[in-house]
Amino acid sequence: MRAKDLLTLEGASRADLREVLDLARDYASGTLDRPLLGKTVCLSFFEASTRTAVSFELAARRAGADVISLSEKGSSIQKGEGLVDTIVTLDSLGADAIVLRHPAAGAARIAALHTDAAVINAGDGRGQHPTQALLDLHALSGRFGGFEELEGRKVAVVGDVLHSRVARSIIPAFQAAGMQLAIVAPSTLLPLEAGAWGLPVLPSVDDAIDWGADVLYALRLQKERMTGGSPRVPSVGEYARYYGVARRHLEDGAVVMHPGPVNRGVEVAGDVVLDPSSLIADQVGSGVAVRSAVLALATGVARSRVAA
């Protein structure tokens, strides 16, 4: 039987999201009886990652799975083995789930063509990062008192949407959860067709607050966006002035989120990162339970109630 891949959240339904979040909530509250016992989960990281890799590994081990990691130095990936060959090898070793991080969008989709194992996209280029959006929804549900309470909340997605796989997952996922979205970014950090998502584009976080944002979701800004052959942002000072989340933005109850790692004083003011109104720690904390749930559903050990 074909396992259930998690490649993208484009087209995900409210029921799809709800199922993962319900199971994750159960797992987080302690009812996790080694559901993945006897299953093999392979972590295949073609791109450096610390928190996502650690979170997936912990999620798999807590759920009782055997874990193989190809993200270590000296692995076949380090030696230059290609994507498809790696996937075929892992398939032959009997992997039940392959967690894949890759620098090119669409890598997870290609991988899924070459294995019967469940492919979990742990981030592919600028494409998708579905478990990030799921753990974000888990953290938001915790803050607002349940998944149903997300309906109608307003989220401003702030920053480098152009290069962000997180943005491409949270936008459809948050919309499926009934949230209203706006983008806050300079044109240089947006696709030329900035209207591709049909969302309003606002010129500053101040404007997002005026728009009524309940959530300020700050995206990471790579410092190299300021230099090199294609400079997109003039300076930390100017970026922080218009696109940085500051304490004043939280005065009326807005919460701040960030997928990490945070550049303090750039995307989020240093004194805001660990503020009570910050969901950043909750996001990281949601990762393990959500990823355990994703693995359990993908491998079929937790039976999906949602029609495929």
């Binding site: 240089t188 300021m226 230099t227 003039p234 300076s235 000072g237 100017e238 002035r241």
Partner: peptide
């Protein structure tokens, strides 16, 4: 339009 008119980095146009 760019820092030092060197054609490399953008200036703080909004500020």
């Amino acid at each position: 339009l760019h820092e030092g008119l060197k054609g490399e980095r953008l200036t703080e146009m909004r500020l």
